[in-house]
């Protein structure tokens, strides 16, 4: 059943997303684009853009994915899957299990998982760039966006809007 699949996959993603919400982006991309073919790379790129535009966690991309797959119920279920276990872990950490969350084992796991996530982000980048950077104008947009976000305090929302406008005016 598709709703259960959405719920389950996003729960799995949330459980291995060491490194915060950013770490979940390549995980979501791999699952949604490569493993389940729910979205094309272009659609996922746009979902990420929307994730930057909305307030709060970037994992809210799950809502977009869920909607594309199964409408509003899909969106709700995917969102639940993305945040349910992290909520549970955090509430447990606040309560009784504090000592466990400082355990060297957890830290060591994270130190192994985090570089893997960086590698996966590379895969995602290749996947999205392959479809997005098809001509000189788009490559230029990407380069300028990278410089702006790395070197200035301009919020990503404005950079993305700039990309939209340049894309619009340079289209054939």
């Amino acid at each position: 059943m598709i709703l259960f699949d959405l719920l389950w996959r996003f729960m799995l993603i949330s459980v291995v997303a060491f490194g915060g919400g950013q770490a979940a982006l390549p995980l979501m991309e791999r699952v949604a684009v490569a493993e389940r073919a729910w979205l094309t790379p272009a659609m996922f790129s746009t979902a990420v853009a929307f994730g930057y535009i909305t307030p709060g966690p970037v994992l809210i991309v799950a809502t977009f994915v869920g909607f594309q797959v199964a409408g509003i119920p899909g969106a709700a279920v995917a969102t639940l899957g993305a945040f349910l276990l992290p909520w549970l872990f955090a509430a447990l950490a606040a309560g009784q299990i504090q000592r466990m969350t400082r355990s060297p084992v957890l830290k060591a796991f994270g130190q192994g998982a985090a570089p893997a996530v960086v590698g996966l982000l590379g895969v995602t980048l290749l996947s999205l760039a392959g479809e997005a950077l098809v001509d000189g104008a788009r490559i230029a947009i990407a380069a300028v966006a990278a410089v702006l976000v790395a070197r200035t305090k301009i919020h990503p929302v404005w950079i993305l809007m700039g990309g939209a406008m340049v894309g619009f005016f340079t289209s054939r």
Binding site: Q22, L25, A42, S45, T46, V48, A49, Y52, V118, L121, G122, T124, L125, L128, A129, E131, A132, L133, A137, R138, I139, I141, A142, A143, V144, A145, A146, V147, V149, A150, P156, I159, L160, G162, G163, A164, M165, V166, G167, F168, T170, S171
Partner: peptide, 19 residues
Amino acid sequence: RAAIDGVNAAVTGLLAVAM
């Protein structure tokens, strides 16, 4: 579509920096 393509290109740049 043209605007979306521009946004997607910008996202690539943002993600490269994030990486």
